[in-house]
Computed example of a mutant assay.
Amino acid sequence: MADYFSQTVIRPDIPRTAMTALEYKVLGQIFDHEDVGDDVYFCAGHGPNDLLFLDLAEVKALLTEDDGVASGLADLVRQEIAKCDADDAELELDMSVIGFEGIFQDIIRRSALDHVEVEAAWTCSKMRPDGFGGAATLITADEIESVSTAGWLEEAIARLSGDAPG
């Protein structure tokens, strides 16, 4: 069986004060992280985690702490909490709904950051043709733009063959 990896780095380091308490908690479960002074370096050795299990009481406390701060993550978490049963102790959060990109975009909108860069290297434990490549994503307050190595190669080949859209 082949193992697929999506090693990922986030640049620049994110100021801790730019994140809500909930965003810090969730990004810390999506990525590996390291405090660098007053900033946080996020990365993923195997790939970003998109299925999180969070202590429900802690999440409710974090939401209270962040009350009044515009956050798509907080909106999603409130929706998911509303679906929980009264005796649930854990919140299952599917981050594919908004993605970590949306969290970083909210952080940019509220902070002095003008962008966040995401670079990913796709690798595989076996030499599979679909197991290698990479991507770059640029997140700004208004846009999230991505390019993959496979997409770039397709466009370059189309230009060479004269099939590029014009």
Rank of each mutant, 00 (worst) to 15 (best):
Y41I: 01
F42V: 07
C43Q: 11
A44I: 04
A44C: 10
H46D: 14
P48G: 08
D50R: 09
L51E: 12
L52N: 10
D55Q: 08
E58F: 04
E58T: 14
K60A: 02
L62H: 09
L62G: 07
E65V: 11
G68R: 00
V69W: 04
V69H: 07
L73I: 05
A74T: 04
A74W: 01
A74I: 03
L76C: 12
L76K: 08
L76D: 07
V77M: 07
R78V: 00
R78A: 08
A82W: 11
D85S: 11
D88I: 03
E90Y: 07
L91A: 03
L91Y: 03
E92I: 09
L93P: 11
D94V: 02
M95H: 10
S96N: 15
V97E: 11
I98C: 11
G99M: 12
G99P: 14
F100V: 09
G102R: 13
G102E: 13
I103T: 02
I107Q: 07
I107T: 14
I108D: 06
I108T: 06
R109T: 04
R110I: 01
A112F: 03
A112W: 00
L113G: 06
D114R: 04
D114H: 05
H115R: 13
H115L: 03
H115G: 07
V116E: 06
V116I: 15
V116W: 02
A121S: 14
W122I: 08
C124A: 12
C124Y: 02
S125M: 06
R128V: 05
R128F: 01
P129G: 07
F132H: 10
G133F: 03
G133D: 02
G134I: 04
A135M: 12
A136V: 15
T137Q: 05
L138W: 09
I139G: 09
A141E: 13
D142S: 12
E143D: 14
E143K: 13
I144S: 05
S146N: 13
S146Q: 15
V147L: 15
V147T: 13
